[in-house]
């Protein structure tokens, strides 16, 4: 005989299941989002028909890219490597600045009068558009990779400093207190209790930021701040699309290779 199944308690039967009802705010929110899209569509005169009309020109553009002109491969490679160098040095400087500012912005390691203004400063750095920063740097330091490196360093610090601060804030406070209790100095506590704990996070954040720096430094040459970007605008303005094709392939290869390396490294961290 199968065991008898107990009937559900009386209370559970009497209460009706809740009705599927959307709240007024949900309706209002959906409507508002839709209105914004319509407004933007109207404002930009986004016309699918215009897209269709441009197809032949697009085809011509791609047609003229083929076959790629490999004669510029050497020039392109040198420019690409310069971009890579800008990204590496810019990231390095950003790491140094972010370590200091990140510590200052961490609410568990710095007093309120210090961490709050530092957070604002980092927000300000993040707020300056990259190309604006690059234009100012070029105006101040002249053409070449130097303004590019500085632009990347400053722009990246805004984000990396915030990431580092968050990593420090997520550190377990117990080891910090434990090292204080053995008589360790402030520097020793930061070095051994805080940095040891968050090191994988810092490296992960840095690699991620390096990928962004690499992609951002590609466009810096457009405003004269060194690297491959100079050739991008040179070839496009001269309608030398076969050279653009070579450039695109080289850049794509480098970016994908470095991203794969970075992903692999990040996965190995623990």
């Amino acid at each position: 005989m199968p065991p008898e199944v107990a009937p559900p308690p009386a209370a559970a039967r009497r209460v009706p299941p809740p009705a599927d009802r959307r709240s007024v705010t949900a309706w209002l929110g959906s409507f508002l989002a839709l209105a914004l899209v319509v407004w933007a569509w109207h404002g930009t005169e986004f016309e699918p028909s215009q897209l269709a009309a441009s197809l032949p020109r697009l085809a011509e553009f791609f047609g003229r890219m083929l076959p790629p002109d490999w004669s510029v491969a050497r020039t392109v490679m040198v420019g690409t490597l310069e971009t890579l160098q800008i990204a590496i040095l810019g990231t390095f400087l950003a790491v140094l600045a972010s370590l200091v500012l990140g510590l200052m912005a961490a609410s568990n390691l710095s007093p309120a009068w210090l961490h709050q203004p530092t957070k604002w400063l980092l927000g300000l750095l993040r707020g300056i558009p990259l190309l604006l920063l690059a234009l100012i740097a070029v105006a101040a330091f002249g053409l070449g990779p130097l303004p590019g490196v500085l632009t990347i360093a400053i722009h990246a610090t805004g984000m990396l400093g915030k990431f580092y601060a968050e990593a420090f804030e997520n550190a377990d406070p117990a080891p910090l207190e434990a090292l204080a209790s053995v008589g360790a100095s402030w520097a020793q506590r930061i070095r051994f209790a805080a940095l040891t704990q968050v090191a994988p996070d810092l490296v992960r954040d840095t690699l991620f930021r390096f990928e962004l720096n690499l992609r951002e430094s590609l466009v810096l040459g457009l405003v004269g701040a060194g690297g491959i970007g100079f050739y991008i605008q040179l070839y496009i303005r001269a309608f030398q699309y076969d050279k653009v094709a070579t450039l695109t392939l080289v850049v794509l290869l480098m970016v994908v290779a470095i991203e794969q390396l970075s992903v692999w490294l990040r996965r190995r961290l623990r």
Partner: peptide, 13 residues
């Protein structure tokens, strides 16, 4: 010397 609740060790070290 203090032995803390939950050890308070540096886990990655």
């Amino acid at each position: 010397g203090m032995v803390f609740q939950n050890f308070a060790l540096i886990e990655r070290a």
